[in-house]
Design a binder for these strands. Structure first.
Lengths: 148, 148
DNA sequence: CGAGGATCGGTTACATGTCAACTATCGGCT
DNA sequence: AGCCGATAGTTGACATGTAACCGATCCTCG
């Protein structure tokens, strides 16, 4: 193996900064969300997707792709959310192998109630700390990283 | 509660982009690290801090602060790493409540062996995809978010 | 001194994620 | 029609994180 190209100061600062930001930012926002609405970040993500859907229900597999989650993890999480009355699961009438997930009224109420506080939290901890130019670049960076 | 300030397009793009980047980037880099070196990201972080220390050992509490980890989580993790022969734990001679953690030769070898591949992985998935200006801004963003 | 609150690290109970294996079903091909 | 590999979702075994609590030790202040 040839000598690797170690990271320069700027590169190291960006990498370590990203790592610490990830930890602290997620910690703060999740804490706010749990305190304000009694929801985890994962709950919020699921509810958010369901509430913005044109259809009343979505296949578990498609939901897992949108969330970038494994099916098994999602299955377990949906079980917990179902028990709390946030979502329902029913057999897909079009494909007996499948299951469709839908929001309950409780779930819809939960996301409606949680959204304002969550947006405020995201603003306080991230968005409002950055300039418009920085927000633009952050979007660019994410796009480049995700572009496989 | 007054009407919240919802996110603009640019803000939403930055936020969702960050979220997706976090998921995918971590997934990729952790996968590489596990495949190349048989280490988890957490293992790497611990070994990395220990290997760059001026002293031969560090207090558990200080390690947990540097890692932004809870003590209990770190305690469990150190137990696992100790069993694998990567680190040792001994009573702190200066404070009988405390424990000091040190790297074993195995642990030092593991981090040395893993570092080149890890740096390469970080480059491939993040650093080398960005321009110097973007790296600078990413560092700035992290600094602002972490401030306070 | 020495009493009592603070601090340290670990453990127990629990939450939540992954991987591999499983069951049920689908659907193309003969 | 019937076979058989592919696909959908769930579950068991396990890894690994947190919060609450515990026993031991430290240290300040009367």
């Amino acid at each position: 193996m040839t000598e690797p190209r170690w990271l320069s100061d700027t590169e190291m600062r960006a990498w370590l900064g990203y790592r610490r930001m990830r930890r602290l930012l997620d910690l703060r926002i999740n804490r706010d969300l749990a305190a304000d609405a009694g929801l985890s970040e994962q709950d919020y993500d699921v509810l958010s997707i369901l509430s913005e859907l044109p259809d009343p229900a979505i296949r578990v597999g498609e939901l897992s792709e949108r969330l970038l989650w494994t099916r098994s993890g999602l299955s377990r999480h949906l079980g917990r959310m179902e028990q709390r009355g946030l979502v329902t699961r029913e057999d897909d009438p079009d494909d007996a192998r499948g299951t469709v997930v839908a929001l309950t009224e409780t779930g819809r109420g939960a996301i409606r109630g949680a959204a304002p506080g969550h947006v405020d939290s995201v603003r306080r901890h991230l968005i409002d700390r950055l300039t418009p130019a920085e927000l633009q670049v952050l979007g660019d960076i994410a796009e480049k990283v995700l572009d496989n």
